[in-house]
Simulated assay, not measured.
Amino acid sequence: MNPNPQATFSGGSNIALKIPRFRFAETVAFYRDTLRLPYLGQRDTSYVFQFGTMRLWLDEVPHYSQTDIWLELSTDDVEGAVAHLTAAQTPVRDELEPLGDFRGHWISDPAGVVHLLSHNEEVQLV
């Protein structure tokens, strides 16, 4: 994997809130009933809402004590981007959550915010 200094990055179309179980039902109700965001469906224990041009995933995480936010970052060259990020001391965090067949990687910024690094053409739908 060679660093790709030309790899381009942009904000993706997904944002996820990793929510502790004890706050999950009331958080779903807030986005569904209070804000009345368009509901796009459910996958496993995640509820998905339209959030402007993005999809907001509300993920129930039983072992969390506080809510965490995860962002999606798109690139035109996933492996070149990973090489570039690794050279810049950005950790690849693929141990966080399995991606299966999805072409991407988990990374985190210096503050610890997790990002799903995905290919521009890869779209994760409900």
Rank of each mutant, 00 (worst) to 15 (best):
E95K: 10
R23H: 15
V113I: 15
R93A: 13
E60P: 07
W57L: 07
N4Q: 06
D44S: 12
A111F: 11
V82I: 14
S74I: 09
R21Y: 14
V48P: 01
H63I: 13
I69W: 10
K18D: 14
L56S: 01
R103V: 09
K18F: 12
Q50F: 05
L71W: 06
H84F: 15
L73E: 02
A87P: 06
R32T: 04
A16I: 04
V82L: 15
L99G: 01
S46A: 12
V82R: 03
T45S: 14
A88S: 14
D76W: 04
F22K: 13
I107K: 00
W70I: 10
G11A: 12
R43F: 10
E95Q: 15
T53I: 10
A88L: 11
T90N: 06
F51G: 02
S10Y: 08
L58M: 07
A87C: 09
W70H: 12
S65K: 12
T8Y: 11
D77R: 01
T75P: 00
R103M: 07
F22N: 15
L96P: 01
T53P: 07
A88N: 11
T67M: 15
P98M: 03
H119T: 02
V61D: 01
L35F: 01
G112M: 04
F22Y: 15
A88V: 05
E97Y: 10
L40D: 04
Y47A: 11
Q50S: 13
V113W: 08
S108I: 08
G11I: 11
I15E: 03
P62K: 08
V113G: 06
T27Q: 14
V61F: 07
I15T: 08
S10A: 12
Q6L: 09
L117R: 01
F49L: 03
G12F: 01
H84Y: 14
I107T: 01
Y47H: 15
D101N: 10
Q89E: 12
P20Q: 06
S108H: 12
F24T: 04
H105C: 01
P62R: 09
A29W: 03
L85G: 00
W70K: 10
F9E: 04
V61W: 07
T86L: 11
H84P: 07
D109Q: 03
D77A: 01
P91M: 05
Y31Q: 06
F9D: 02
V92C: 02
G52C: 02
D44C: 06
T27G: 04
E79I: 06
S13D: 13
D59W: 00
L85S: 00
A111H: 09
L56T: 00
S118E: 07
D109S: 01
H115W: 14
V28I: 09
D101Y: 05
G104C: 03
H63M: 14
N14K: 11
H63L: 15
R103L: 10
T45W: 08
E79L: 09
R93T: 14
N4V: 00
E95P: 06
W106T: 00
F49S: 02
P20W: 05
Y39W: 10
F22I: 13
L40T: 02
T75K: 00
F102V: 15
A88R: 07
R32S: 08
Y47R: 08
Q42N: 09
T67E: 13
L56M: 06
V48C: 12
A87D: 08
P5K: 05
F24Y: 15
D76N: 15
L58V: 03
S65W: 10
Y39K: 05
P98I: 02
V92A: 06
R43C: 08
P20I: 03
D68T: 13
H84V: 09
Q89G: 11
L71A: 08
S74M: 12
